[in-house]
Design a binder for these strands. Structure first.
Lengths: 237, 237
DNA sequence: ACGGAATCGAGAAGACTTTCTCGATAAGGA
DNA sequence: TCCTTATCGAGAAAGTCTTCTCGATTCCGT
């Protein structure tokens, strides 16, 4: 035992979730134990990093053997709060909101969306994936009454701040924000932004850089035309 | 001028995208220039961090004034590759894939999804948001023929690796992966994972920690019952 | 024209993350 | 039983990212 709980970074938390996925596959395969080295190999990470992340959960492994698989899975779930399911409200019943409602696996991962709010009168009163849609002005009292502390925002950017305000007023303490907007909330509210436009930025940047590097490499091969005809077939464009 | 281009972190790239959003709002408001301080205030960041990020793009500002707004916007777009639109293919025409197809703004942000692939015979041949759906086996030749280098994976996890393989075979160099699976791809392929389960991990962890801290704080106030009746109204639960 | 205030640019310092290294420990085979 | 091998745990080192600091620059009001 021992292992004082350490601080863990955001990246570390995401890696733990990835480990959890890998471990469940291994469980199905019937492996009884797993080593940090084994997990690292699957995910192409450093074994010492996996060990550090697992250390953060407080579980202890055995030299030469590793960690007992079932126990480690359970430990990670407890650590991430997945065994203590939290009810959640969803704002925005558009295509993204509907898609999120369809993710039944969320419930196993600690989140259960119990109600949906949208200000489109055509949607209010209807049922999406088994959840009823309400007007947003009902949100605060509903959340307060049901002691809900988790809110998912899948509205257009223009409605995101107002929605966040409603949620905070309803006692929500954690926001999962899919709208491309920066939310201003009190310090005691946790926000996780899932802005696709921001994510796209790093991808387009890296792709552009990669392609530029490739073009440059190709040019370096083809530029000295005087040098060789044998290289021509490397430049088929 | 001057300003040698520096390395920028992934987080920095995401912040640049956030700045871009803020700047466009300011442009609509008619502001001619903007300072790093001003951006930082809106997004609750450190001014020096904003300055460092902007430095990375290579644009130079003027003391006491800041940066010319229109130029800075354009500079960020160029830096992120948003003015050089890249065609993309999408795999998976489920609810998430359809939602992604509906994001018309992607085109302004450097990505244009031109074709959809799904192995559901009921979907193949149909049109979603104006894009035709094809069988996945057509993907490699299509991508090669159209010189497409960007692929979006919105399939179930079980199909993600096979889809990635098809895309790599089709010359794709950057993958935006929404499936909860770890993809094994060659080194020259850039992958950006958008795994919602991983994201949820950090949120549930933080929420749980926050709520535990609140319970503890409440307990500390209420526990020494012998001490005071005046504190009772602080414990209204 | 001058002084004060705001801002930039860039290096230094600090904080945080990841990787390295090594002693200790447990399993399995000779 | 002993030796080899794989692994853990944890501190040290290296690396990366963020924040601090300060001189230089520019604007604006007097």
């Amino acid at each position: 035992m021992a292992l004082q709980p350490r601080n863990i970074s955001d990246a570390g938390l995401r890696r733990l979730a990835a480990y959890h996925k890998v471990l469940q596959e291994m469980l199905l395969a019937g492996t009884p134990t797993v080593s940090a080295t084994g997990i690292a190999r699957v995910l192409a990470l450093e074994p010492s990093q996996v060990r550090k992340d697992i250390e953060a959960t407080g579980i202890a492994g055995k030299p030469k053997v590793g960690y007992p698989l079932a126990v480690l899975i359970r430990w990670i779930e407890d650590f991430l709060g997945w065994n203590n399911t939290k009810q959640a409200v969803l704002a925005g019943a558009g295509s993204l909101g509907s898609a999120l409602l369809g993710y039944q696996k969320f419930r196993q991962l600690g989140m259960d969306i119990v109600a949906v709010f949208d200000n489109d009168p055509l949607k209010v009163g209807r049922t999406i994936h088994g959840k009823q849609v309400f007007f947003p002005d009902k949100l605060p009292s509903f959340a307060l009454g049901a002691h809900i502390h988790l809110g998912v925002i899948a509205t257009p950017a223009s409605a995101a701040q107002a929605t966040a305000d409603l949620m905070v007023a309803g006692g929500i303490r954690a926001l999962w924000n899919f709208a491309p907007a920066h939310l201003r909330v009190p310090d005691f509210v946790v926000v996780r932004n899932e802005d696709l436009y921001d994510s796209l930025a790093s991808l387009t940047y890296k792709l552009e850089k990669r392609m530029a590097a490739e073009r440059k490499a190709a040019a370096e091969v083809c530029a000295p035309v005087e040098s060789a005809v044998v290289l021509l077939d490397a430049c088929t464009w």
